[in-house]
Design a protein around this nucleic acid. Structure first.
Length: 582
RNA sequence: GCGCCCGUAGUUCAACGGAUAGAAUGCAUCCCUCCGAAGGAUAAGAUCGAGGUUCAAUUCCUCGCGGGCGCACCA
């Protein structure tokens, strides 16, 4: 709908003006409003007229009249100027009906034209091998997954890549620690299969001692280098650690319902690293400095190091290789790195270095940064400091709490059903809690908030859906849903205030999706769905559906059906399952 | 010292330069003889400070104050 209005305004106001078109809350100002009058006036005044205020209103009146005159299809009931220079639009019933139909149709045509808008590679989750996934990894995983689903839904060719941290110095640390254990004869470790908890313990203990004992650090560096040089023993150890960790991660991804097209971790690029450095030197972009190879960058105090003085490589080298490789393989228009804000310097430098080296063909590289997950004390949850909240424990706790609630609310269901519901609700609550916040702010980890099942939460949306699904189910059972009923208009359900606000909210759905593909903020969708659910519940309490008179009943059933469909689609885009019963 | 992010009801969060700053959760009051009360309805409660740009500033700029996170050979 919004796009349609933008087109109409462009047609009468000229193509170059920047203006906004937004749905409005206050019914006194119509359904949609634009500030184009003020923008045009400001442009015309351009420095001279001090009384642009008055002109803006006149401009708006002039444009409003033109738009109304050009509206041959009867899209608007009213188009009116309002001071200081807004134009307000009242949609006609016909326009509302048409947009209402399009909410579903646009989805179908979008998937038919996959790739028309472009190709996007999304890099997210990237946990570090050998550490259990912590709540800190949750944000990248969930935000990335939501973006992946949303871009795909919007019609983009979409590729997800899990850039696992599986190749750096942490492996040097682990291998050194492991070998040390073998020497000191810790039989436990060699007689049974190593677990991810063992790895975490090895890593934490060794790192702690490394701080005070430089010889241990030296040892870790050596092992890193040996691994990168293809040392047989180290590669074998690496492989074992890698597999143990990956299996563990996949378990969590399964619980979360997250999938990846590729698991191209850092190790995937190991054979390209030397080439990257040589190429950078050859192009004169990189140079030697203090024994290391660096790319000096204008405006930065510190250069971008791509090879250490002991000739080992770093994640910067890997990231450059990844830019190159993704470019060749996918020819993307857009690459999103869903990584926490602490890395912002790294990515600014990385993108600059990539540009200097000519590794891209003009695709947009974006650091989709997000705030850190902090402890309740607002301090960083650092693995080394032992403040590691294991993600799996949080998920378990959430499911447990959801189970208590289901048990008290639905004693009529079987235990099997209740468990399934608790699983879905618990996971959904955790995801929603994260996705519903502006990703750029830091968020503090609060158990009670993480496990919130009321108010602005996933269960609220799921409940609303389940309730509407239940109406539809009963409608089918009572009289049988006839196809011709669905084809009828919804005019009969555009009579009361709560019906109209609900429909108007419904038709905003495509605009919300579009916006996220432009600014990469998934919380627009949670906001929208929450508002939609509120309108839906309000409607539910005010207007009977099944008990309404025949015509009204049919129309309202369509409204219910479409609302349920949008809620379900929206929840799915957030990676949340919409249950039919809960 | 430099860089990135943040500062909005008691608390946790919205507001793409627009009209009366929205929610959720505490708290208070009402609603299950009516399609599911994980719900609905009502009430109280907020923009860190000082300048500036603009017809219009929570939003943009400058300077303070406060919080978080980073600043070549960890990732």
């Amino acid at each position: 709908m919004r796009n349609r209005i933008i087109e109409l305004i462009r047609a009468v106001a000229g193509g170059k003006i920047e203006f906004s078109v937004e749905p409005v809350e206050n019914p006194a100002f119509g359904h949609y409003a634009t500030n184009v009058g003020m923008r045009v006036a400001a442009l015309r005044a351009a420095g001279k007229s001090p009384s642009a205020n008055r002109t803006a209103f006149e401009v708006a009146r002039e444009l409003a009249a033109k738009i109304k005159a050009s509206d041959k299809e009867g899209f608007f009931d009213r188009v009116e100027a309002a001071p200081p220079g807004f134009i307000n639009f009242w949609l006609s019933k016909r326009a509302i009906q048409e947009s209402f139909k399009k909410v579903e149709e646009s989805r179908k045509s979008q998937s038919a034209n996959r790739g028309m808008d472009g190709t996007v590679v999304i890099d997210y989750s990237h946990p570090n091998i050998a550490k259990p996934m912590s709540v800190a990894h949750l944000r990248s995983t969930i935000i990335g997954d939501a973006l992946y689903r949303i871009f795909k839904f919007a019609g983009w060719e979409t590729i997800s890549d899990n850039h696992l941290g599986d190749w750096g110095k942490q492996f040097g640390v682990l291998i050194a620690a492991y070998k040390e254990q073998l020497i000191t004869n810790n039989l436990k470790l060699i007689t049974r299969k190593i677990t991810i908890e063992d790895l975490l313990k090895l890593y934490v203990d060794y790192s702690a001692r490394m701080k005070t004992d430089p010889t241990l650090d030296e040892q870790a560096r050596k092992e890193t280098k040996k691994l990168q040089d293809g040392d047989r023993e180290n590669t074998k150890i690496w492989k074992e650690f890698y597999e143990v960790s990956l299996a563990e991660f996949k378990k969590i991804y399964e619980i979360l319902g997250v999938t990846f097209d590729y698991y191209w971790g850092e190790s995937f690029y190991k054979d390209m690293l030397r080439g990257v450095v040589e190429d950078a030197l050859k192009k004169g972009v990189a140079k030697e400095s203090e024994g290391a190879v660096v790319i000096p960058l204008e405006g930065f105090e510190t250069p971008f190091v791509i090879q250490k003085s002991d000739e080992a490589f770093l994640y910067s080298t890997t990231d450059l290789a990844a830019i190159m490789h993704r470019n060749k393989k996918f020819k993307p228009n857009l690459v999103l790195y869903v990584v926490d804000n602490g890395q912002s310097l790294h990515f600014t430098q990385l993108f600059k270095a990539g540009e200097l080296l000519g590794l891209t063909r003009g695709e947009k590289l974006v650091h989709v940064k997000f705030g850190l997950m902090l402890g309740e004390d607002m301090k960083k949850l650092s693995t080394r400091a032992g403040k590691h909240i294991v993600l799996e424990a949080v998920l378990d706790e959430a499911v447990k709490k959801a189970h208590e609630v289901v048990l008290s609310k639905r004693p009529d269901l079987s235990e099997n059903e209740r468990e399934k519901i608790a699983q879905a609700v618990g996971i959904a609550a955790v995801k929603y809690n994260d996705l519903s916040q502006n990703r750029q702010s830091d968020i503090a980890f609060h158990w009670d908030k993480m496990l919130n099942l009321e108010g602005n939460s996933a269960p609220y949306l799921m409940y609303t859906y389940a309730r509407f699904a239940s109406i539809l189910r009963e409608a089918r059972e009572e009289r049988g849903e006839r196809k011709e009923e669905r084809e009828q208009g919804i005019e009969e359900s555009l009579k009361t205030e709560s019906e109209i606000t609900l429909v108007l909210k419904l038709i905003q759905f495509p605009d919300v999706i579009q916006r996220i593909t432009e600014d990469y903020f998934p919380h627009h969708l949670t906001d929208y769905l929450f508002e939609l659910a509120k309108e839906a519940n309000s409607f539910y309490h005010r207007e009977p559906v099944l008990k309404a008179e025949a015509d009204v009943r049919t129309a309202r059933l369509q409204l219910v059906s479409r609302t349920a469909a949008v809620l379900k689609t929206g929840l799915n885009l957030l990676g949340i399952e919409a249950l039919e019963k809960m």
